[in-house]
């Protein structure tokens, strides 16, 4: 448990996917590989349709994560909170499983509240100290355009939150749809996002929202994560030479 790395995908979207594989199935696939999927729906004045809301909920459920629907102003704090809560949850599940093995059938729920308070303190500490890798997937289909400056702010802000943790944390940012593929890598794995980074420049605005395929490609980003450091360096270089776009597309698909 000491060296545990928590892996999360965070989807920021404002509507329904309409292209490719079901995002719910993609989220289930991620969870299968130990990656939690969280979803944030961003809405303007207009409400998110019932269908969109349901999809967001289903993605998070299948991905073992959490979801929320917020206005652009609340985005930054929601990103941090969802990430932290999902982390606590994952660790809780792991601790619970281990406890079950030690105690037999009963897990944390069967402990008296006094004892559980102590477990909670431990879970909190583990959450603070463990490594965390997060891929943020930003929906950049046409309707998201007015919300992108808030998203950009939230990305930078999230980087500060990660930086403030005791454990190692890294993040990567992708946008979907990409120029030629479903997902473009906007920011490769990094432990600090500079404020100057412009998400809005060089964007393809389009009507398609390939949420499912984007999640599948994001899963691949975590595999890259596992490469030996020498190879990782090569990936990073290529990503930069390639104008931070599509570092994955040639290698994965």
């Amino acid at each position: 448990m000491k060296e545990a790395t928590l892996r999360q995908i965070l989807v920021v979207t404002d509507g329904c996917s309409n292209t490719g594989m079901s995002p719910v199935a993609a989220a289930a696939l991620a969870r299968e590989q130990g990656i939690t999927v969280n979803v944030i729906g961003v809405i303007d004045k207009s409400e998110m349709g019932e269908k969109g809301e349901r999809e967001i909920r289903e993605i998070a459920e299948a991905g073992g994560g959490l979801c929320d629907i917020v206005y652009p102003q609340q985005l930054a704090q929601t990103v941090q909170m969802l990430t932290r809560k999902a982390m606590t949850r994952t660790i809780h599940q792991v601790v619970n499983k281990e406890l079950k093995e030690i105690l037999g059938d009963s897990g944390i729920e069967e402990l008296a509240p006094d004892k559980r308070v102590q477990v909670a303190g431990m879970v909190d500490e583990l959450g603070e100290k463990s490594s965390l890798n997060v891929v943020m997937l930003v929906d950049t289909s046409g309707s998201m355009k007015p919300k992108l400056s808030a998203v950009q702010q939230a990305i930078h802000d999230f980087s500060i939150s990660l930086h403030s943790r005791s454990g190692k944390s890294r993040m990567a940012v992708g946008s979907f749809p990409g120029k030629h593929k479903y997902l473009d890598i906007r920011i490769p794995w990094t432990d600090k996002v500079e404020q100057a980074h412009q998400l809005t420049s060089d964007l393809t605005m389009s009507g398609i929202t390939p949420t499912g395929p984007a999640i599948v490609e994001a899963i691949a980003l975590f595999e890259q994560d596992k490469l030996p450091s020498s190879l990782q360096e090569r990936y990073r270089d290529e990503a930069e030479n390639d104008d931070m776009n599509g570092s994955l597309r040639d290698h994965v698909f």
Binding site: K85, T88, R89, H92, I108, E109, P113, R116, V117, V119, A120, G121, V123, D124
Partner: peptide, 8 residues
């Protein structure tokens, strides 16, 4: 809903 948060 999340017992851990309450306990913290």
């Amino acid at each position: 809903a999340e017992g851990m948060d309450i306990l913290m």
